[in-house]
Design a protein around this nucleic acid. Structure first.
Lengths: 339, 339
DNA sequence: ATTAGCACTCCGGTAACTCGAGTGCTAACA
DNA sequence: TGTTAGCACTCGAGTTACCGGAGTGCTAAT
């Protein structure tokens, strides 16, 4: 177990390194006026902390830097929420005060403000569309051979896909088809749509509309389109300001990662209802070396809806980010639940 | 006017610099076996070319580098289309061969292949939605107070927006409203929708549905949503490989630029039907220093539809990019016109 | 148990030097 | 007169040597 003095020292080191990005030495620590013991003592303690794996040296005669284990201990035991400036809190609240109907807009602005306040990059995972249920199904013919299929979900999300119609597919055929589909599919979650279409609807449709199966084939793609929630970014270039990202390869890896939406989902989707912090290698991803991710889910009513994630260097201002993130997440949950 | 020899030299310099990224000296030029004159002669000619503004030196005793004017002259007079490897041509064709209905998918793949083949970054401007005409208008109620408004355009594009309904707005009200709107708005291009809604439809609606104006107010946003065509990227990180982008500030400016969709539109939208090359400062944008953009519009039927743009360093392999771009644009035009 | 003192290490910056590639000029040449 | 060989000169990039500062670890004194 760590002594009280060791805790103090670890805390100072993390707090200091977070703001300065420079290895912190014993002298510097002893300067803090609530530190009563001498540099030499501190050096001894630091040697112990290093042996325990909480600290690291960049080279033999440098100051100390927190290790991943050090950060982990810090966030688990030493993290005390920061008081957020009133004007910053207001900035967050202002997003929710403006009477906006459009969820997309709201989410975009949230992401931007958050990345502005934190100086890190925000990733906002939109709702998982797959869990929405079909509210209404529709086909709008465009020409003789083409039409648009539209699915409206109970949450107001709209999916659409182009269809090619077989020759001689009449408007009345469409009408029949739409009726059957609405009858059969209303209330079905999108993730089961594919199955339902293929297994149930197809049979019935064939009985009523002869060439229905070609249309259904095209239609099947509708359900396979957007696999998971949409992703919004804020402050993509913010990380370029962090000294740990002054390396081209690093930048490339991160940018590539951010373009691969599928990867992001698994990486940033939170596992439970609380705020989660993943430090460096805990992310299980090459590109996330020296990076930490803090995720916070938000919800609409009872359902989990989406998540905000902040990605920055492991040397991140955890206390600040956690508090900001929590404010934002509460705001979002409330704003989205109300209407 | 430039002598034949000067033309030869300019051409060699551009071609060489494009591949090596190194200033090219007289000795190096004289090594080409179709160059018959000596380094000394070449030095003289280069001095002249520099005086004329086609070449530059990076420092007093370095080889020469093409100036913007040099590139401009090169693309205007010295550019001869390159023969593209059969397998590369096939790669492009393969995108169009697969029987894909989905335009979005097609565009995405095009962008990716193009950036892979060129090693530069591809930007694909989707169709300008504002010119589409309303085909069908619909409102799907979700709850007592909310509904989704959907507009399908003649090209199969779907716009949608959430609405809040005033208290006591009945299904029959919705039906009336939809009928009126379909009656009035079908065939109206999206860009005029706002106006038509406000001026014409509002009056008539108020006569039939008492609380229509609140709904219309929300509805007005539908038309102001997506201002212009969607943007697709390919090979965003490709430019990090180019030595001229080994500078953090440069990278940041470019990334910021790419995130500002509105800026992109004006920057990359081609002015006429042909392929256009804009070199460095011709782009009128800070971030585009040392960058060239080649744009090629593609069309569906007679209408101009969208555009492909390739962005790379001024030291770009123009002849290759132009040929590839032309192939891709023809392919796209054809693929999109057919169905 | 704590701390002052001291020798030692390592990084970062700077100055001096070298090497190679390239130029511009002059004079010789066809 | 246009072309070329020769040569002195310039500049950048890379290498080495050096210095100062910040920091450590250890020992001995408190």
């Amino acid at each position: 177990m760590l002594t009280n003095r060791q805790l103090q020292i670890l805390q100072v080191i993390v707090d200091d390194f977070v703001t300065s990005a420079q290895p912190v030495g014993s002298r510097q620590i002893s300067k803090k006026d609530w530190i009563t013991f001498s540099p030499a003592t501190i050096r001894n303690e630091m040697a112990d902390l290093e042996e325990l794996g909480f600290l690291e040296k960049t080279h033999t005669s440098s100051g100390r830097v927190p290790s991943e284990k050090g950060y982990r201990f810090y966030v688990d035991h030493l993290l005390q929420p920061q008081i957020i400036q009133a004007d910053e809190a207001n900035q967050i609240q202002s997003v929710f005060k403006q009477q906006m109907i459009e969820m997309e807009q709201l989410i975009r602005e949230s992401a931007n403000i958050l990345s502005e306040l934190t100086t890190y990059t925000t990733i906002l995972l939109g709702p998982d569309v797959q869990q929405h249920k079909v509210k209404k199904f529709q086909i709008v013919p465009l020409t003789e051979q083409s039409a648009v299929a539209i699915i409206v979900t109970d949450n107001g999300h709209v999916e659409n896909r182009l269809l090619t119609l077989p020759n001689g597919f009449s408007p009345s055929d469409i009408e029949k088809m739409v009726n059957i589909l609405n009858d059969r599919l209303t209330g079905v979650p999108l993730q089961e749509l594919h199955l339902k279409l293929e297994v149930e609807a197809l049979e019935i449709l064939k009985q009523h509309v002869k060439t229905a199966d070609t249309v259904i084939q095209s239609l099947l793609n509708v359900s396979t389109g957007q696999k998971e929630g949409k992703i919004y970014y804020g402050g993509k270039t913010n990380m370029l300001n962090q000294p740990e990202f002054h390396d081209l390869n690093k930048i490339r890896m991160l940018m590539d990662l951010m373009d691969k939406e599928s990867q992001l989902q698994s990486l940033f989707k939170p596992k439970d209802k609380g705020i989660q912090i993943r430090i460096g290698s805990e992310n299980n991803h090459m590109a996330m070396e020296n990076c930490s991710v803090i995720t916070a889910p938000f919800s609409v009513g009872e359902e989990q809806y989406g998540a905000i994630a902040i990605i920055g260097p492991t040397r991140m201002d955890y206390k600040r980010v956690v508090t900001l993130l929590d404010m934002m997440r509460n705001g979002l949950s409330r704003a989205l639940t109300k209407p």
